[in-house]
């Protein structure tokens, strides 16, 4: 059977994604070193802040691009409870039996319902919360001083969630047609079915 190829990730998608990925990785590394108090704090802090701003601008780029080009549909359209349950069943049962993924990415709908739900939470809750708390930690308004520990608590906990997400994301990206198919897709834009 001939393989189907779809161009699903445009260059802005890929550029955004890889900038985001590398920056988040850098933020996690510098953040945890800062948090656990080793290394040159001043340098670490500089890189953490710089990467934080890169992610912030990258996020804004993603948001504008998504709204302008209508990419929001990937996250909100075509999702159903049935689809979500189907996807959960696949990841928890079907995948071990060698069944095919019930979802097939197309340029019109590139995220399966479970992915869409997870990314909605990531991009509309976790990343903004982390960004806002990060900005507050960077420059705390005088009247907010007393909330500093709470802000730090939220920032730090979300960091753990993001790291857990990142690990899960890296793993689930191996569940494509081949182990590296999804990685390749995010590099070239083309996905094979």
């Amino acid at each position: 059977m001939a393989k189907e190829r779809h161009y699903i990730y445009t260059w802005p998608d890929r550029l955004w994604h890889w900038i985001h990925a590398l920056s988040i990785l850098g933020l996690a590394i510098t953040g945890f070193i800062i948090h656990f108090g080793s290394g040159d704090l001043k340098t670490l802090r500089f890189w953490h802040n710089l990467l934080g701003f890169i992610v912030a601008f990258d996020y804004l780029f993603w948001l504008v691009h998504m709204l302008v080009y209508g990419n929001l549909r990937h996250y909100v359209r075509g999702n159903s409870w049935q689809g979500i349950l189907q996807q959960i069943r696949y990841y928890t049962v079907g995948i071990f039996r060698g069944e095919r993924n019930p979802f097939h990415a197309t340029p019109q709908k590139r995220l399966n319902p479970l992915q869409a739900l997870a990314y909605l939470g990531l991009m509309f809750v976790l990343v903004p919360v982390q960004g806002i708390t990060g900005l507050l930690l960077w420059r705390v308004p005088a009247s907010w001083d007393r909330y500093l520990p709470v802000i730090a608590e939220v920032h730090f906990f979300v960091a753990y969630l993001l790291v857990a997400f990142l690990i899960g994301h890296l793993y689930l990206a191996t569940t494509g047609v081949t182990v590296f198919a999804d990685y390749k897709a995010m590099l070239t834009g083309w996905i094979e079915e």
Partner: peptide, 24 residues
């Protein structure tokens, strides 16, 4: 206070973050 990098004795984390740290 949240003294970045200054882990507290006993808990070896930030006292106010102990449970969140553990949960994370």
């Amino acid at each position: 206070y949240h003294l970045v990098g200054a882990l507290e004795p006993e808990t070896h984390t930030y006292r106010h973050l102990y449970w969140l740290d553990l949960l994370g």
